[in-house]
C-alpha cells in the first residue's frame, strides 16, 4: 500500500483531534491552534484547554474542548 502524503485530520468527538502530516505549527495557545499541513492546507482549531502531543513523526494530537475547526485551502490564507 502506498503511503498517503496528503494531510489527514481525524476528529474524535469534541475532545480529541489528530493531524497527520502536519508541517508547521503556526500559532498555539490554550484556546487556539493553527497548523499548516504538508499539502498546504491550514487548519485552525478553536477551543479551550488545548493540549498538544507529538504522537509520531509529523503528527500531532490535540486534546481539550474543541469548539470549531476551520480549514483553508492553498492561497486562501
Amino acid at each position: 500500500m502506498a503511503a498517503y502524503n496528503g494531510s489527514q485530520i481525524v476528529i474524535c468527538g469534541n475532545t480529541y483531534l489528530e493531524v497527520e502530516n502536519c508541517k508547521r505549527i503556526m500559532e498555539y495557545n490554550d484556546i487556539y491552534l493553527k497548523v499548516r499541513t504538508t499539502d498546504g492546507i491550514i487548519a485552525e482549531i478553536w477551543g479551550s484547554g488545548l493540549r498538544l502531543s507529538d504522537y509520531n513523526t509529523n503528527g500531532i494530537a490535540v486534546r481539550g474542548n474543541i469548539s470549531s475547526i476551520e480549514l483553508h485551502g492553498k492561497g486562501e490564507e
Binding site: G49, R51, S53
Partner: peptide
C-alpha cells in the same frame, strides 16, 4: 514548538 516537533524528542500534554 516547531523545533521541538522536528527534533527526536517526544512530548506529551503540551499546554499553555
Amino acid at each position: 514548538i516547531n523545533s521541538l516537533r522536528n527534533s527526536p524528542i517526544q512530548f506529551y500534554g503540551l499546554t499553555f
